[in-house]
Each structure stands twice: as C-alpha cells, then as structure tokens.
Amino acid sequence: MMDQPSVLELVEAVRNFLEQRALPELKGHTRFHARVAANALGIVARELAEGPTAFNREAARLTALTGGKGSREELNRLLCRMIREGEIALDDPRLTAHLEATITDKIAIDQPGYTGGKAAGS
C-alpha cells in the first residue's frame, strides 16, 4: 500500500495550492468559493489529524454514560433518546461533562477560531 504522502499531507498540499497559488488569480464569486473550498479542506485536515482520538474518547464516554453497546452513532442515538424521554436530567454532571467535552473536540475540528470571543456576563 502506498502511504507516502499520507492523506493528511495530500490534503494540506491541495489546501496550500488553493490558498497560495489559485486564490490570488481568481476574482469575485469564484474567489469566494475557492476560499470556502480551502476552509473545507482545513476541516478535513483537522479531522484526519484529531478525529480518531476525539471519536474514541467520545465513544468511551457514551458507553459509560448510557450503559449501552454499539457504534458511536448508535450510542449517540441512545443518548439522544434518553435526553428526549427525560431518562437523564439536563443537569446530570456526567451528561454536562460529556456534552462539554464533545463540543470542545468538535469545534476544534470544525471551526477552531469560533471560541475566541469573550462572552457577555452571565
């Protein structure tokens, strides 16, 4: 199996090409969409790098929290049903810790710049 360059390196190379070489030559809507495309490759690169560890941690927390078995998707469905049917309290510290940890990992992949803003007083 050919694994050099890695998929992560390939994605980074395409992203750099888009940002540094293609974008300066483009105009208007096409330029805007090329920037969006480069950002999408940023998500891919971060998920390739950080996703596996984050998803494993999420699945481990879901197993402990729900007492269920199955894939990460199945466990998420189970947790959603428990929340919806009131089988778990919204202020259950195990639930709040799980949601907090999951969204922290997710936003680091999808939109790492988003969490920078200082919040208004509670």
Partner: peptide, 18 residues
C-alpha cells in the same frame, strides 16, 4: 461547497448552546 461547509457550522451553534 458553500452549503457543505455551512453544514459543519452547526457545531458553532452547539458550542453556543452549551
């Protein structure tokens, strides 16, 4: 591609909800 990346912005709203 634009719609695809907006799909991933759902996580921003989840962060805000938390």
């Amino acid at each position: 591609v634009e719609r695809a990346t907006i799909g991933r912005r759902a996580s921003e709203t989840q962060w805000d909800l938390v």
